[in-house]
Design a protein around this nucleic acid. Structure first.
Lengths: 343, 343
DNA sequence: CTGAAAGCGCTAACAT
DNA sequence: ATGTTAGCGCTTTCAG
């Protein structure tokens, strides 16, 4: 590869025409150029192995065809920590690529939410997808950004940010309801500490609703707050087994947690589901790797990510957006981690 | 946010100086500007909420501060399929960000390896990291790229691509050796089909070496070729349990596979490690999620990714590179999936 | 249909 | 220490 790139001008010279005509050909504006010229220019471009300069194009056209994908950088270097995010990014990348967009991946240290602003504006992004932020963080960042953006799994109601999320409340409800239906009455809730409105709070609210409907009061001592991590799950499982032997079931807000709980229970010398039934959330691959396989609330990650990109594309093309908020349905997948007490 | 961005010129006007002086201040070339001017300009830039244009900067400076991270797009939309890649990307992103670089994430459809070329040259990347490609693919893409690049887990010997990989041969060797030491003699090998030089071939070669040293001939019927996927592992585990009941141990080239094998073995009514011992490779989180926990060959993903970025940064800064190839050590982590037959 | 001119926001190389 | 002059490669606008 030669060190210096081929430009429109080079092609124009070789083709005996002007830069402008070449530009039109390259951009497919064939109605403005004669067929003969089109063919000639295309042949030369091909021969010279011409590649347009995205930077020059962005500068001149005020559109970068770049989309930012932003994630919170929880601890240290781990951006993509959750398998959930990973799957989502995979889908987003594929769709953007197919639509001619490039993907700028960036994590945002919680210490410095403003850093995103500079990064995004600097690159003149056409759009951005925010994954896994708290509503308050979205609210902080939004005003400084002047671009199409869609947020995944947020409850922020700001009208100028599109929002794709799950019906988390229903998720918490059907999980708990399932346990109730199977005859459980002492049901623990394990998830991250609820600090503000968000997916966890909604899932909890579904849990509470199911219990209320069943006439069972929420027992605060059965709400265990913990990180979303396997190790934390193990701890929670052990804790429940030893401190709350009367508890027969638990709803965990994440499969990772649920898998950990299962292990913790076993580590405490008890069994899943014989002694403790577990329902997770996410339906990660992991849910089928563990034994017994995990009963969990499933979400269609692909559909969610797809929807998010569709909305973003529409917005970037200035098409009208159907709705600011898209709520994806969730369902329960029954596998082997819940014991039927009614049998 | 105003729709139109603040430029150096705006600041210059406001500061009553020239664009060039402002540029010098913004870029920290304080030796060329008086302190008073520096202060004044900085204050105004701050007030106007100035953000430099990365696109303009790349165009003028021929350096984008963009690094591409390329992955093979195996099937459909799944770029980040392997947890291994995910962890690596996480580390890379963090390090690049800390060093002031941006990350362009891109998957490459196997059908169209040339598409990477256009994408990378188009953005004038300062560097690129290739993860998980076959040597032949690297060889195809390399000539069309004119940038610093580092390749992870490749055996390509081309002198102008830096290479960070594991000692895969040793990995295969110590895994197999461990099984031999524990008294196993009928040891299967499960991994993807070996088509060319690469990590799998090396791991297999380590396996073979260990067997040879032990005076055990390689039994072709115990080499099972399969995808790297949990489901494929289940199948392989079932197959070994039913078709080769005399086999007492298996070395799988990936933890994902090993976890599947464990399940397949159980599905066939047999037990791990009582009937079949399993050693994996990667030491993913998953290895500790399964029970029994998986004995596996561990690699330091963080160290590997860190090294890769360090090399890339050095290369981009035109510093001299210590060596074209960096080989990371591997070790065996003993957990619960291997039975000791000598006891 | 084709071309000329201007400028996107910035940096590099010379002035002064 | 500051200013001037050229572009980087492309698109947009306006003229032929």
């Amino acid at each position: 590869m030669s060190a210096v790139a081929v430009t429109l001008k080079d092609i124009a010279n070789e083709a005996g025409t002007t830069l402008m005509t070449v530009s039109n050909v390259i951009n497919g504006r064939y109605d403005k150029v004669s067929q003969a010229t089109v063919d000639r220019v295309r042949a030369i471009a091909e021969k010279l192995d011409y590649v347009p300069s995205a930077t020059a194009r962005s500068l001149a056209a005020r559109s970068s065809r770049l989309v930012g994908v932003l994630l919170p950088d929880s601890a240290g270097h781990d951006v993509l920590v959750s398998p959930h995010n990973v799957a989502v990014i995979g889908v987003i990348e594929g769709m953007l690529r197919e639509n001619g967009y490039y993907l700028l991946l960036r994590s945002i240290p919680p210490s410095d939410p403003a850093s995103v602003t500079a990064a995004l504006r600097s690159w003149n992004l056409d759009g951005a997808v925010f994954i896994g932020f708290l509503d308050s963080q979205i609210r902080t960042m939004r005003p400084t950004l002047d671009t199409s953006m869609v947020v995944l799994d947020s409850y922020e109601k700001n009208s100028d940010v599109m929002n794709v999320r799950l019906n988390d409340r229903k998720g918490g409800y059907i999980a708990t309801r399932h346990l109730l239906d199977k005859g459980h009455t002492r049901i623990a809730f394990v998830g991250p500490k609820i600090t503000e409105r968000g997916v966890v709070k909604e899932r909890f609210s579904g849990y509470r609703k199911a219990l209320r409907e069943a006439g069972i009061p929420v027992d605060e001592s059965l709400i265990v707050a913990t990180d979303v991590a396997h190790a934390s799950g193990v701890e929670a499982g052990r804790f429940l087994s030893t401190e709350h032997p009367d508890v027969t079931a638990v709803f965990a807000t994440a499969d990772l947690l649920a898998a950990g709980i299962m292990e913790g229970v076993r580590a405490a010398g008890r069994d899943v589901p014989a002694d403790l039934s577990v329902v997770g959330f996410d339906n990660l691959d992991l849910a089928t790797y563990v034994s017994p396989q995990l009963t969990t609330v499933t979400q269609d990650l692909t559909a969610k990510a797809t929807r998010a990109v569709e909305l973003l594309l529409m917005s970037m093309r200035s098409e009208s957006i159907p709705a600011a908020e898209t709520v994806m349905d969730v369902q329960l997948v029954e596998r082997g981690s819940v014991r039927d007490l009614t049998a």
